[in-house]
């Protein structure tokens, strides 16, 4: 493991902890897209099936378990928690997330490394993760006034993706035969989706004002 990969994983972990902190302590999920959270739960559930079939390291297994647990916990809070669910912006969070799932699945059936059950699901999870942030970005754009925790959450998610790109570049130059076209391309698409948000996030941070997205 290199420093970029570790920084990426830690940003990812931190972003989820921020979101859990917000939901658990403030008992509010205002500004958080349930659609995106449901997509992430599906991403982790389809990607980490290998938790039962292979072992890479204790670190790997613990992180996978955390991502699975946290994503389903967040969905549970937003759907069923007595107080939290009332703060959910249901009317604003209208992105048709089901329309993302089928194309990603068809693409995974067509473009994959190996045609096995686990491999196709793994590939599906990569494609779906690439676009899973879209409902969240649309919701931010709609509400425009972004509260700090939600803004930081999306920022650290984007940081996680950026560090992964540095990690791939590093591995490409330091390891033999390290090519992962599918991972790279879906990762690049995913990171590109954050570019616009990053711009406004950094701008508001430099002017030390509240993050506001243009309509």
């Amino acid at each position: 493991m290199n420093i970029f990969r570790l920084a990426g994983d830690m940003s990812h972990l931190f972003s989820i902890l921020l979101l859990l902190l917000k939901i658990h302590t403030i008992k509010s999920c205002a500004g958080v897209s349930l659609k995106t959270q449901e997509l992430y739960a599906l991403v982790f559930a389809t990607r980490y099936l290998d938790i039962f079939t292979g072992y890479i390291s204790l670190y790997n297994t613990l992180m996978k378990m955390f991502f699975l647990w946290s994503s389903f916990t967040i969905v549970w809070y937003m759907r069923y928690h007595n107080v939290v669910r009332r703060s959910y912006d249901k009317d604003q969070d209208t992105f048709r997330h089901y329309f993302l799932i089928l194309p990603c699945f068809i693409l995974a059936l067509l473009v994959h490394e190996k045609f096995t059950f686990l491999e196709v699901l793994w590939t599906f999870s990569l494609y779906l993760e690439a676009v899973a942030i879209l409902p969240q970005l649309v919701l931010l754009q709609r509400t425009r006034n972004v509260d700090n925790l939600t803004g930081h959450y999306v920022f650290f998610l984007g940081a996680y993706r950026s560090f992964y790109i540095l990690n791939w570049i590093y591995r490409y130059f330091t390891e033999q035969n390290y090519y992962k076209w599918i991972t790279w391309i879906s990762g690049l698409v995913q990171t590109a989706l954050y570019a616009d948000f990053f711009y406004y996030y950094v701008k508001s941070w430099r002017n030390s004002e509240r993050l506001q997205l243009p309509a």
Binding site: D50, N60, K64
Partner: peptide, 10 residues
């Protein structure tokens, strides 16, 4: 080897 560490990232 290829199989084993092809999915070593999260």
């Amino acid at each position: 080897e290829d199989d084993e560490d092809s999915h070593d990232e999260l």
